[in-house]
């Protein structure tokens, strides 16, 4: 051995290869733990029973509603298919909204709690590889649950009214939702020390981005001139903040609400200006002048919302992944921390 070691020689694409190796290492470790024993299969079975049971309930309800309202019509089967599709994509969206952030909520904070993060960060594996490996392994589990639900979702084809491209659109939104909300969970996990706190914050974030944005949107819409009173009316001017809501809420407010994105997908299956299309039209309020008859006949342009929603989720994911990498790195350049009492770092003697 020489007196002084020489730094390792550089390899072509070495950094990229190191990142891939790191992602594989972390991913394999995480999946080994996640899939070990009966737990994974029990959860998968419960998930399928839940989805299948829900599908049965929706189908029974839709069948009764359609036949009692209109008798046996030529489109009854398609109506049932659309109702089933709507119910399933919304249920799967809810499942993804719960599972994706929950799967990543402990990704980094658990490493801190178990005091294993130091062991990991003193290996050459990069912080990017740690973050992506954790995210991919957590999402692989969510993707597995989604893939397992495809046969149940495919039942809609037996009723009609929904095409394969609609199902693909719905699953694309689900995948985007999983990545977006998984990234949120991962970021929170990297930011806070305790998994319990990370889980609670994630839950609040999910509720805020779904229920919260919906409430704000409805309230804002109601306060503007398009619906309800006009801000310029006498008396409204004196209402302070409310008087500033002179324009309708921007549709971007709902970009991170995957339920709205799924309603846009469902809107694409409707043959008339149905409920979901009304919702999408209310959110986008698109000026239909110049839009072709094919798109405008039902009052809303198809595929107008969900691609933007996915793009927004993608941008947010990217930003949160970059921030998470900074938070995981022991030698990070930026210091992003939650405010806390000034004291010495835990785990350090001095």
């Amino acid at each position: 051995m020489t007196a002084v070691a020489h730094p390792p020689t550089r390899r072509p694409f070495g950094a990229a290869r190191d990142v891939v190796n790191g992602i594989v290492a972390v991913g394999v470790k995480e999946l080994r733990g996640r899939m070990r024993g009966r737990r994974a299969f029990v959860v998968l079975t419960i998930h399928l029973l839940l989805v299948a049971g829900f599908a049965w309930m929706v189908e029974s309800f839709a069948e009764r509603t359609v036949t009692s309202n209109f008798g046996s019509t030529f489109s009854a089967s398609a109506d049932i298919g659309r109702a089933l599709f709507t119910g399933l994509v919304l249920l799967l969206t809810l499942i993804v909204l719960v599972l994706a952030p929950a799967s990543t909520a402990g990704a980094i904070s658990l490493e801190r709690e178990k005091q294993t993060l130091d062991l990991l960060t003193t290996t050459p594996i990069s912080s990017l590889a740690i973050v992506l490996g954790k995210l991919f392994s957590a999402l692989t589990w969510v993707f597995l649950l989604l893939a397992a639900s495809i046969p149940v979702t495919a039942l809609v084809f037996t009723f009609g009214g929904v095409g394969p491209e609609d199902v693909i659109r719905g699953y694309v939104v689900l995948l985007g939702t999983a990545i977006g909300f998984g990234s949120i969970g991962l970021f929170v996990s990297a930011l806070v020390k305790r998994t319990q706190a990370a889980t609670v914050i994630n839950l609040v974030a999910v509720i805020g981005l779904t229920v919260g944005t919906t409430i704000v949107f409805i309230f804002w819409t109601a306060m503007t001139g398009s619906q309800g009173f006009l801000p310029d009316e006498p008396g409204v001017r004196d209402q302070g903040f409310l008087a500033t809501l002179t324009r309708r809420p921007p549709e971007a407010l709902m970009y991170l609400n995957p339920f709205v994105a799924q309603l846009d997908v469902v809107c694409g299956t409707e043959t008339g200006f149905g409920t979901t299309c009304q919702v999408i039209n209310g959110v986008t309020a698109r000026d239909l002048a110049g839009v072709g008859f094919e798109e405008a006949q039902f009052g809303v342009a198809r595929d107008s919302f969900w691609p933007r929603s996915l793009l927004a989720l993608g941008v947010v994911s990217l930003l949160l992944i970059i921030l998470s990498v900074q938070l995981v790195s022991p030698t990070r350049r930026w210091r992003l921390r939650l405010p806390r009492p000034r004291r010495r770092p835990a785990g350090s003697e001095t």
């Binding site: 190191d18 594989v24 394999v28 024993g37 005091q115 294993t116 062991l119 290996t123 785990g347």
Partner: peptide
Amino acid sequence: LGFMPDVFGVYDDMKVWEYLDFFARCYG
């Protein structure tokens, strides 16, 4: 370098050989 901290934890659901295998993967 190899570093052994004063306080360290272990991963749940991991066998002894898997533990070493994981770190060996980290080093490529």
